[in-house]
Design a protein around this nucleic acid. Structure first.
Length: 455
RNA sequence: GUGAGUAUAGCUCAGCUGGUUAGAGCAUCAGAUUGUGGUUCUGAGGGUCGUGGGUUCGAAUCCCAUUACUCACCCCA
C-alpha cells in the first residue's frame, strides 16, 4: 500500500450495516413514542445562516459552530490590508455566511417564526437529524451526532413538560436502559441566586454546582469563589445544595428558603405541578428533583430535564427544558416552548457496551435461499418473490457457488433461516428449511415455511 | 482553547537496553470436504513500521519536527 490511508474527519464515523440496523432500532422506538403523543416530523437543512445560529449558544457555543466558506471567489471583496490587520473572527464573518446546524432547537425556532401562518398552535414536532459541533472529540462526544428532539411550541401548559418526562421514561424503558430522570427549574435557580445576593451570577452558580457529582462540594465551593461569589453567599448556598429526601421534602424546604423570591416560589409551584402531572400520566421511573442540575444552554427559562444512565460515566443521554422566548429573537415574541432531546449516539454506545440490543434487529435479511443453478434457481426465484410478498426480507444467493460458501455467507450476515431447494426437493416440490441458530433442519412446503419463519 | 498519551498487515497487538530477509491472533482467499455454516487441519495473499529530518557502520527501536488519532479539562448530546 503506497497511497495515503483514507480516513474520516475526526469525530465522525462510518456506520456498518449491523450498526445501522441497531441505530434504526433506536430511532424507531424514539419516533414511535413521539408519535404516540402526537408529535409530527419535520426536517430542516443541514446548514443555516450564521445570523440564525450565532449568539444563541453563548460565547463557547459560537466557537463550536462549523462555518461554511462562501462559494465563489470569497476573498474578492476584502481589502488586503484588512486581511493582515483584523482578527480572524472579523474575516470569517466576511468569507462565511452559513454554518452547520449546532442543535435542532434553534433551527426549529426559526422554522416556527417563518411558518407561523401555516402552523396551528400548539405545534408539536419531532426531528431526528444530525448536528455538528467543532468540539474536541472524546468518549461519548462526536463532531457529528444525531439528536432526536420533540418540542411543543405555543403552549404554556405544564402538561407538556410532564409529557416530556413521561416520554423519556417510556423510551428508556423500551430500550431497556437503566436511567435516572432528573428535574429542576431555572426559576428555582434564579430564586436561589436572588436570595444569596448574586442574581447576576446565576450562570456562574449553575455551571459550578452542576459539577457537584463529578468534583465534590469542596471543589465546587472553590470554583464559586473563583467565579466571584463572596463567602457569605457560598455558605448560604450550602443548605440548598445539600437538600435531600423526597421531592416533596425538598420542595417544602425550598419554600421556606425562598420566601423572599417571587420567581423562586413560582418555580417551586411549577415543579410540583409538573411532577403531579407526570404521576397522573403514569410515569414509572419517578423523576428526581435535583437542584444541582443546570444544563449548559442559556435559553432555558423554566423546567430543566436531564436523563443520565444509572451507571457508566458517559454524560447525559437526554436533556431538555422550557424556553419562554426563543422565537423572540427571530421576531415572534410571547411564544413559549418546551422540548427534549435524545442523544442517539450515546444511547447507542451505552446499549452496545451493555449488550442491550435484541439479537435480530429488523432490517436484516431473514431468509437466504441457496443457489444450485439451473431449474432449482427458477424455483428459488419464485419462492423469493412469494416471501417478499409476505414482507419477509429474503435473499437468493446470486451465484451457484459452493454450498459451504453460501452457508458461510448466511452465517456471516447472521441470517436466521436458510432454504435449500436442490434436485430432490425440486422433484418432490418441497424444500429443506434450516434454522441457523439451532442447526435444526426439516422438510417443508411454502405454507409451512411461512408459518415457521414468521412465528 | 488547555494538558497527557499513542501511531507496526483490513482489525487487535508483540517486536527486550539499536544488529541480517518485520511477527502472532483474528479477518480474507484457496484446499482437506462434488448437498450444509458457526469446530478442526493445511496453504496463500497482505507491511517502503504515520510523514519529514537527524544521530549511527546499522533505526520499527534513540533525538527533533510535523500530522493524525485517543483520553482528560473547558464545554456539552
Amino acid at each position: 500500500m503506497n497511497y495515503q490511508k483514507p480516513s474520516q474527519p475526526k469525530g465522525t464515523r462510518d456506520f456498518s450495516p449491523v450498526e445501522m440496523n441497531r441505530r434504526n432500532y433506536i430511532f424507531r422506538i424514539i419516533k414511535e413514542t413521539f408519535e404516540l403523543y402526537g408529535y409530527q416530523p419535520i426536517e430542516t437543512p443541514a446548514m443555516e445562516n450564521l445570523t440564525t445560529l450565532l449568539g444563541k449558544y453563548g460565547e463557547e457555543g459560537d466557537k463550536l459552530i462549523f462555518r461554511i466558506l462562501n462559494s465563489g471567489d470569497f476573498i474578492s471583496g476584502i481589502d488586503p490590508s484588512e486581511l493582515l490587520n483584523s482578527s480572524s473572527q472579523k474575516i470569517s464573518g466576511k468569507i462565511s455566511e452559513k454554518g452547520l446546524r449546532y442543535d435542532l432547537t434553534v433551527p426549529f425556532a426559526r422554522y416556527v417564526v417563518q411558518h407561523r401562518n401555516e402552523i396551528t398552535f400548539p405545534f408539536k414536532r419531532y426531528q431526528l437529524q444530525p448536528v455538528w459541533r467543532a468540539d474536541r472529540p472524546q468518549k461519548g462526544r462526536y463532531r457529528e451526532f444525531y439528536q432526536c428532539d420533540a418540542d411543543v411550541i405555543g403552549s404554556d401548559s405544564l402538561i407538556n413538560d410532564a409529557e416530556l418526562l413521561v416520554m423519556a421514561d417510556q423510551i428508556f424503558r423500551k430500550l431497556n436502559i437503566g436511567v435516572a430522570i432528573k428535574l429542576n427549574s431555572r426559576k428555582i435557580l434564579t430564586g436561589i441566586a436572588e436570595i444569596i445576593g448574586h442574581p447576576d451570577k446565576i450562570i456562574d452558580i449553575t455551571v459550578s454546582i452542576d459539577k457537584l457529582d463529578k468534583i465534590g462540594i469542596d471543589k465546587v465551593n472553590e470554583e464559586l469563589a473563583e467565579r466571584g461569589l463572596d463567602q457569605s453567599a457560598i455558605s448560604k448556598l450550602q443548605p440548598i445544595i445539600n437538600l435531600s429526601g423526597s421531592n416533596e421534602q425538598k420542595l417544602d424546604r425550598l419554600k421556606e428558603l425562598l420566601t423572599s423570591s417571587e420567581i423562586g416560589k413560582a418555580g417551586i409551584e411549577e415543579t410540583a405541578e409538573v411532577l403531579k402531572f407526570a404521576e397522573q400520566m403514569g410515569i414509572v421511573d419517578k423523576p428526581e428533583l435535583d437542584l444541582t442540575l443546570a444544563r449548559g444552554l442559556n435559553y432555558y427559562t423554566g423546567t430543566i430535564i436531564e436523563v443520565k444512565a444509572t451507571e457508566a460515566g458517559i454524560g447525559s443521554l437526554s436533556g431538555g427544558g422550557r424556553y419562554d422566548n426563543l422565537t423572540g429573537i427571530f421576531g415572534l415574541p410571547g411564544v413559549s416552548g418546551t422540548g427534549i432531546s435524545f442523544g442517539a449516539d450515546r444511547i447507542y454506545d451505552i446499549m452496545n457496551e451493555k449488550n442491550l440490543f435484541p439479537e435480530h434487529t429488523s432490517g436484516a435479511t431473514h431468509v437466504l435461499l441457496i443457489n444450485f443453478g439451473g431449474n432449482e434457481s427458477i424455483a428459488c426465484l419464485k419462492l423469493a418473490s412469494f416471501l417478499r410478498e409476505h414482507n419477509i426480507n429474503t435473499e437468493f444467493y446470486p451465484e451457484d457457488a459452493k454450498i459451504k460458501k453460501q452457508f458461510a455467507y448466511a452465517d456471516n450476515k447472521q441470517i436466521p433461516w436458510v432454504v435449500i431447494i436442490g434436485e430432490n426437493e425440486l422433484a418432490t416440490n418441497t424444500m429443506q428449511l434450516k434454522n441457523m441458530h439451532t442447526g435444526e433442519q426439516k422438510t417443508a412446503d411454502q405454507q409451512l415455511l411461512l408459518q415457521i419463519i414468521t412465528e
